[in-house]
Amino acid sequence: MNQRQVADGAPRVVVIEDDQGVRDSLVSLLRSMKFNVSAFSSTAEFSSKGHLASVGCMILDVRLPGQSGVE
C-alpha cells in the first residue's frame, strides 16, 4: 500500500524493529488498517530520520542493537 491509500489525518505509527521480516509484517498489518506508518531498523536510524513530534504511537522492539526499546 502506498501513502496515497492512507486515510487523511490517520495517526502516525512508528515501528522500530531490527528484524526485517517482523518489521515488514507489522508495517503491512498497520497499513491494512489505514494507519500512516514509518518504520526504522534501530533507534539510531529513527533519531537521524524520524520526527518525534509527528508520532502518535511507537512500537519498539525491546532488544535492539545499541539502544534498546526500553531505553
Rank of each mutant, 00 (worst) to 15 (best):
R12E: 09
S42A: 06
D61H: 00
F46R: 10
Q5K: 11
V13Q: 06
R4E: 07
V70E: 12
D18W: 09
L30E: 11
D19G: 04
A10C: 10
T43Y: 06
D24W: 07
N2T: 11
V14I: 05
D24Q: 12
M1T: 06
N36Q: 13
D24C: 08
Q3F: 08
V62M: 00
Q5C: 01
I16M: 12
Q5G: 01
S48F: 10
S47Y: 02
S42D: 10
P65R: 12
F46S: 05
Q20W: 13
A44E: 15
V70C: 06
L30A: 09
S38G: 14
L30H: 08
E45P: 15
L29V: 15
I59C: 05
Q3W: 08
L29I: 15
G50V: 07
A7N: 02
V15F: 08
S32L: 09
S48H: 13
M58H: 08
L30V: 08
N36E: 13
K34N: 15
E17V: 03
R63P: 00
G66R: 02
M1I: 10
K34I: 13
V37K: 12
K34V: 11
E71P: 04
R4F: 06
S38A: 13
L29Q: 12
V22P: 08
G69Y: 03
E71T: 08
Q20M: 10
D19W: 01
L52A: 06
T43G: 06
V37R: 10
E45N: 15
I59L: 09
S42Q: 09
F40I: 15
H51C: 04
S38M: 13
A39K: 01
P11W: 02
A10I: 08
S41A: 02
D61G: 01
V22N: 12
D24S: 11
Q3I: 14
G69C: 03
L26V: 03
S42K: 03
Q67A: 02
V13I: 14
R12L: 10
S28L: 10
V70M: 11
Q5D: 13
C57N: 01
P11Q: 05
M33A: 14
L30F: 04
G56C: 07
Q67Y: 00
C57D: 03
P65I: 06
V62K: 00
R12T: 04
M1D: 09
A7C: 00
S38N: 12
N2P: 09
V6S: 01
N36A: 11
E71I: 05
F35D: 06
S28Y: 11
G21D: 10
